Each structure stands twice: as C-alpha cells, then as structure tokens.
Amino acid sequence: MSTEPTLRPERPFFSSGPTCKFPGWSLDKLDIKSLGRSHRSKYAKGRLKYAIDLSKELLGVPDDYLVGIMPGSDTGALECAMWSMLGNRPTTVAAWESFGNVWIQDAVKQLKLPNLQVLDADYGHIPDLAQIPQENDVVFTWNGTTSGAKIPNTDWLAPGREGITINDATSAVFAMEMDWAKLDATTYSWQKVLGSEAQHGMLILSPKAVERIESYDPEWPLPKLFRLKKGNKINTGIFEGATINTPSMLATEDYIMALEWARSIGGRKAMFERADANAKIVTDWIESTPWLRNMVPDPAQRTNTGVCMVFQGEWYDNLSAEEQAAVPKTIASKLEAMDIGYDFNGYRDAPPSLRIWCGGSVEAEDIKRLLPWIEWAYEALKNGTL
C-alpha cells in the first residue's frame, strides 16, 4: 500500500497493559464519594467489597472460593501466593514468555525451592505440560502476555490432583474462560483486560489453597504485604474489603466502573466475544500479509488478547540483526508520532515484533483502521521513504 490511508482509529490505544479504557469511559463518570475517606470507613470498605463481589460474579468464581484485593498488581498477588504456599512439596514452574520467567527466577533464586522442575519454551511455543507430575505444586501463566501463546486447555491438570495450582491469569481473565475446578490460586491485575488503573491485583483462592495456607508455615519470612493469615487461620477480612495496606479509592472506583460496563454489555461472555472478534481481524490479516507471520505457529495456542507478529520475507531476511530489530520499532514510532496507534511495538525482551492488544475494551473498527497504516508504514520503510 503506497497511498497513505485516510481513516484513522478514533481511539488509537493498543497497549497490552495498561490497556485501552472501555468505550465511553470518562473521568467525570467516576463515583468520587469514597475519595478523601478512610479505606476502613464503612462506605469505602463497602465499595471495596462491591468490587470483590462484582469481580466474583462476572468471572463465575465458585461460591466457596475467596476473592481479595492485593497490593502490587498481578505481581504482588502472584508472589504472595508463591511465598505463602510453596516449599513443602515438589514444585513445577512452567513459562513461555518474560513474565513466566520471572516466576522461575523467584522459585530458583529467591525461594530456592528444593525438588524444583522448570519447564520453559521459546517465545511463541508452550512446553510439554504433560511432563508435570500431578503431585507437584504448579505455577504457570495461562496466557503469555508478551508472546501471544496461551494454554489451549487444562487437560494436563488431573481432577483432584494432589498439588496446588497457581495461575497467573492477568491477560486471560475477561477474555478466556477459567477452569476454576483445577485452579487453586489465580491472580490478575485491574489494568489488563478491563483497561482499569494499575497497582492493584486480585487473588482468588480455592478451599484447597486456603487449607494449604492455614496448615503450612513457610521457612522464609513473609513481608506484611504477603501475610494472609491471622493467627493460624486465613484472614477473611482481606476478602471482604479490609485490604492489607491502603488502596487507591480512585483506582477502585475506576475498576468498579469497568466492571459495571462489562456487566452492561453482557458480562464475561460478551467480553470473550469481543476479544475473539478483534483477534480474528488481526490473525486473518496476518495470514493474508506475506511479510508477516504469527509468533505462535499453532493456532490452538494463539491468544485472543495480545496478538504478536514477526516479520519475514526476502527484504527483511536480508537485513542485519540490528536492522531487523529496528523495523517494528520504526513502524510503531512513526504511527505513534502521527497519533495513529500507541504502544503496539513488541515487548522489549521478545523477538523483534509488533503486538496489538485485542481485548474486549478495544473497538473492532479501530483495529480495522490501524492495519492499513501498518501496511503503509512497512512499504514506506522498505522503500526508504519513512
């Protein structure tokens, strides 16, 4: 495409986190009655509890599971689960992109877990999860935020297995159905699929996870931010709006507004459908574009949120490694400067790539309008005119 496109995305927000605000979002729509109040006040605590209850409702979390608000975004919630529950039996940590590799480093260098099995794979691939012994505790990332590779199913987790399962679902919830019966600790952050504000995470615990926490004291010290017990019992207050430390009520109200929007359009099923439709637009375009390929070769393992693509073809293959790395950066930078699309360059540790967020808060029409601009920028770069 040598002619510059004419249609521009109305909302050029394609970042994979924090992600796009939902359509119609406006700051003046926030409920601000909790601002300037103690988070322990009856009203503010009620709003925190409402955020928890609405999250549980929309995600279809079983009634006997606990849902709590944690500090430190998904990272804080996930590491709290690791620090609180791991260490008393063999553990497997499986990873296929950068954030999963952080959990590997936590297990190896920080917790120094004995009897540790590490499974990893290159970007775009998933390791053989059937290698995991069912008696092991398991830490894994449902959807690879920086690689675009997701687990296609949970068949590799046996029903009633002995070990606990810790699931980083931050770029999966509200886009993919969770198999709650096989998940013991599930975490996510407000700023991913719902496009809310950052710094707060969610921790969802099964009865099996609660039993592990209550019956096991790890040998390492637990920071205050990770302490889920009061005496020898789970601190149920955390799961009723009494957060461990002071939350941002402004961020809480933004999260509530995003949850209410998701409910208004049909709940998580509607969010799934929007993400699927958005991802199909991008994946079909990749398939029809000879100088691109999906980073994930197996269609069953391709995400419907952060779709990642790499370059190919004679012109690109003849570039030096340094020149190849500059291709997606140059395209993304040019279109950002033109206010066509923001933050869709690939992750810094991933192979040179582009990554377009397709979660449910993004409008399909904006994605359709972005893609011709990428084609235009690629051809201009190839012809030396960008």
Score class of each variant (00 low, 15 high):
T91Q: 07
D137G: 04
N143D: 06
D106P: 08
V118R: 08
L157E: 09
D137V: 06
N101P: 09
L111R: 00
V139F: 01
I151G: 01
T91R: 15
W96T: 14
E97Y: 00
L116Y: 00
R89G: 00
G124R: 12
T91G: 05
L129G: 03
T154G: 06
R89K: 14
W96R: 13
D137I: 11
V118F: 00
G160D: 04
G144A: 11
W103D: 11
Q105H: 13
D106T: 15
N88V: 10
D137R: 09
P90N: 08
P114K: 10
L157K: 12
A158Y: 00
A121E: 05
D128A: 15
W142H: 11
P152V: 02
A94E: 09
N88P: 05
V139S: 07
A94W: 01
E162M: 05
G163Q: 07
P159L: 04
D128E: 14
Q131A: 10
I104S: 06
N88Q: 12
L113R: 07
L157W: 08
A94K: 13
Q117V: 01
Q134R: 06
A107Q: 10
N88Y: 15
K150W: 00
W142D: 03
N136D: 15
D137E: 03
T91P: 09
E97G: 15
T92M: 07
I104F: 08
N101G: 10
G124V: 03
P90L: 14
S98D: 09
I132M: 03
P90W: 09
L113C: 12
I164A: 09
A95S: 13
E162A: 13
A149H: 02
I164E: 03
K112P: 11
Q134Y: 01
P90G: 12
S98L: 08
P152F: 14
P152K: 15
A130P: 10
V118K: 10
N88G: 05
N136C: 13
A94V: 01
K150V: 13
N136Y: 13
T145V: 14
F99K: 10
P159I: 09
N115R: 09
N101I: 02
L129T: 07
L111Y: 03
Q117W: 01
H125K: 15
T91E: 05
G163K: 03
D128M: 14
A121I: 02
T154F: 15
A94F: 01
W103F: 07
V139G: 01
G163C: 06
L116F: 05
